[in-house]
Amino acid sequence: MIGPIVKRFQLSRRRKIYQIGAELCRFIAKDIKREIRVLDASGIDEGYVVAQVRTQNVLHASVGREPESPFGDPEILHVDRAWLWGGESWGGAEALRPRIPLITASDLKDLLSSVFPQATFESEITNADFGSWRLTVTQDYKEIEFVWGPLSGFGGIDPEIHNEDVFAHCDEYLYSKYAAIAFARDHLKIEQAEEGDPNI
């Protein structure tokens, strides 16, 4: 009985805090300030919002050791991870923060087709309620996939790789569109025939 009441209270509080247009700020480690600008709160009942995030070492900025950081690109931000700090407890620089970039299958296709003009693409919606999708990329009989969902994240899959984690959403989580290009470059390699190969 208490569990559902607590959950309703938590959801009501989240709706109040993470409203569209809200700008939130909190120190998450020594000298480390994070600011969150909420752009879309329609997924708050599922635990996420679309937001821009800025994390800054205010001490470094105040003494000119680093310029003031701009807000990042819009991303899917899970509110239960919004204030996590991936760096050292004493501050310093933040480790790479896991994030879910806001990208559509069409956006990714356009980006990859400029790098791999000979590739073919096939996309499908895997969950219409959440806008989740899968994009299959094929070049010279080599196939890879990209998957995206606001709850599961963004990642790349190489069907030739044996992933021992049967519950894994993908082979590698990707935190930006540039990481997707790097994944494609790594896994769509065309093997070059060695010099003297009788099959040339």
Results as ranks from 00 to 15, higher is better:
residue 137 V to Y: 03
residue 12 S to K: 15
residue 85 W to F: 04
residue 182 A to L: 14
residue 21 G to D: 10
residue 20 I to Q: 05
residue 60 H to S: 14
residue 119 A to S: 05
residue 173 Y to C: 07
residue 16 K to H: 14
residue 21 G to S: 05
residue 127 N to W: 01
residue 27 F to C: 06
residue 195 E to T: 12
residue 26 R to S: 03
residue 150 P to M: 03
residue 122 E to F: 05
residue 16 K to E: 15
residue 142 K to D: 03
residue 149 G to D: 13
residue 86 G to V: 14
residue 30 K to C: 01
residue 98 P to A: 10
residue 14 R to T: 05
residue 64 G to S: 09
residue 20 I to H: 06
residue 48 Y to V: 02
residue 167 F to G: 00
residue 165 D to V: 07
residue 162 H to T: 14
residue 27 F to L: 08
residue 35 E to C: 06
residue 91 G to I: 06
residue 89 S to I: 15
residue 126 T to A: 10
residue 3 G to S: 09
residue 187 H to V: 15
residue 198 P to D: 09
residue 26 R to E: 11
residue 58 V to N: 12
residue 96 L to H: 09
residue 131 G to V: 07
residue 181 I to F: 12
residue 154 F to K: 02
residue 132 S to E: 07
residue 53 V to Q: 05
residue 82 A to M: 13
residue 192 Q to A: 15
residue 24 L to D: 00
residue 177 K to P: 06
residue 32 I to M: 04
residue 26 R to D: 05
residue 101 P to H: 07
residue 84 L to W: 05
residue 136 T to E: 01
residue 198 P to W: 06
residue 92 G to W: 10
residue 180 A to V: 13
residue 187 H to G: 11
residue 11 L to R: 13
residue 48 Y to S: 01
residue 150 P to A: 04
residue 119 A to D: 04
residue 94 E to L: 10
residue 173 Y to P: 01
residue 145 E to R: 00
residue 146 F to N: 01
residue 183 F to L: 12
residue 52 Q to Y: 10
residue 119 A to P: 03
residue 7 K to N: 08
residue 39 L to D: 04
residue 188 L to Y: 05
residue 96 L to D: 14
residue 148 W to L: 07
residue 144 I to G: 00
residue 7 K to F: 14
residue 77 L to Q: 00
residue 107 D to W: 02
residue 138 T to Q: 05
residue 120 T to H: 03
residue 37 R to H: 11
residue 191 E to K: 14
residue 45 D to R: 02
residue 36 I to C: 04
residue 173 Y to H: 14
residue 27 F to T: 12
residue 60 H to R: 08
residue 102 L to I: 12
residue 178 Y to V: 12
residue 61 A to T: 14
residue 42 S to H: 07
residue 143 E to Q: 07
residue 164 E to D: 12
residue 53 V to T: 11
residue 74 P to Y: 04
residue 42 S to D: 08
residue 116 F to N: 09
residue 41 A to R: 01
residue 60 H to E: 13
residue 37 R to L: 15
residue 11 L to K: 10
residue 160 E to K: 11
residue 18 Y to L: 10
residue 123 S to E: 14
residue 128 A to D: 15
residue 40 D to W: 04
residue 29 A to T: 06
residue 16 K to L: 13
residue 92 G to Y: 08
residue 193 A to H: 12
residue 188 L to F: 06
residue 192 Q to H: 13
residue 12 S to D: 11
residue 35 E to S: 06
residue 41 A to T: 02
residue 1 M to N: 09
